[in-house]
Simulated assay, not measured.
Amino acid sequence: MQINSTSLFSLQVYEFWTFSTPRIRMLLLCHALTVAVVQTFIFSENRAFARNINFYNVRPPLDPTPFPNSFKCFTCENAGDNYNCNRWAEDKWCPQNTQYCLTVHHFTSHGRSTSITKKCASTSECHFVGCHHSQDSEHTECRSCCEGMICNVELPTNHTNAVFAVMHAQRTSGSRAPALHLPVLSWAFMLLLM
């Protein structure tokens, strides 16, 4: 009769368990339960911490920008949900020919996300924002574009948030109206009093 290594190990465990004292068995059982409880606690803590990421406070690292007015977007391709899309988004600068962050959200008639794509986009890619319902597949596609550093946190779900959101035009230093400084104003006031 030949005994393979698995059978030999099983036999040794059986003999140890059968012939060891109840006290040793109790200590081993307590040790195994303690290890299991500690591992469960550690894994649940890490999961709870990961689920509580605030994507609105995400700040890109202070690495040098590749060109003036550089920006980053959350980026993912066909993700299953918004949380995982944002959490595992690539951290890279958008190409110079893009100005906006695009989000495309596909979901069922019950509101369950089926596909999420986020990326850097050009102006032409942002012309088709809004929601479109497909009669054939009973799915809805909502698209939104935004301007700014990692601005595409949320998903578009209806016509009120599936929009093209741009920041207010900022004045350049050449187009700004001249500002009167306090010393000039005080000097003019003194002239009036004389």
Score class of each variant (00 low, 15 high):
Thr123Arg: 07
Leu29Tyr: 12
Val38Phe: 13
Ser122Phe: 00
Ile3Trp: 08
Asn82Thr: 10
Pro178Leu: 15
Trp17His: 08
Phe67Cys: 06
Ala177His: 08
Leu33Met: 13
His105Gly: 02
Asn86Phe: 01
Pro183Arg: 09
Gly111Thr: 02
Glu138Pro: 00
Phe16Leu: 11
His181Asp: 13
Leu33Asn: 06
Ser113Cys: 00
Thr140Val: 06
Phe16Gly: 04
Glu15Val: 05
Ile24Thr: 13
His181Met: 13
Thr172Glu: 14
Ser20Asp: 12
Arg87Pro: 00
Ser115Gly: 02
Ser134Gln: 03
Met190Glu: 13
Pro66Gly: 12
Pro64Thr: 14
Thr40Gly: 12
Cys73Tyr: 05
Ala79Pro: 01
Gln135Val: 03
Leu8Thr: 04
Asn4Tyr: 10
His168Thr: 10
Phe16Val: 02
His127Asn: 05
Thr6Arg: 12
Cys131Trp: 04
Phe41Glu: 10
Trp93Ile: 03
Glu15Leu: 10
Arg112Pro: 00
Arg171Phe: 09
Gln170Tyr: 03
Cys73Thr: 07
Met149Ser: 07
Lys92Ala: 05
Asn54Tyr: 03
Cys30Tyr: 13
Phe9Trp: 05
Tyr14Met: 10
Met167Trp: 02
Leu27Trp: 13
Ala188Val: 09
Val58Ile: 15
Ala188Tyr: 06
Ser144Asp: 04
His139Ala: 00
His133Val: 01
His181Val: 11
His132Glu: 04
Ile24Asn: 10
Leu182Asn: 10
Trp17Glu: 10
His106Leu: 04
Met167Ser: 14
Gly80Cys: 01
Ala89Arg: 06
Cys76Gln: 12
Gly111Cys: 02
Glu90Trp: 03
Ile24Glu: 11
Asn69Leu: 15
Ser20Gly: 07
Val163His: 12
Ala169Cys: 08
Gln39Arg: 11
Arg47Ala: 15
Pro64Leu: 14
Phe164Asn: 14
Asp136His: 02
Cys145His: 06
Tyr83Gly: 01
Glu125Ile: 03
Glu15Tyr: 08
Pro61Ser: 13
Phe164Cys: 09
Leu180Gly: 00
Ser113Gln: 02
Ile42Asp: 03
Leu29Pro: 01
Cys73Glu: 07
Met26Pro: 00
Ser175His: 08
His110Trp: 01
Thr65Asp: 11
Asn84Gln: 09
Phe189Asp: 07
Leu28Met: 14
Met1Ile: 08
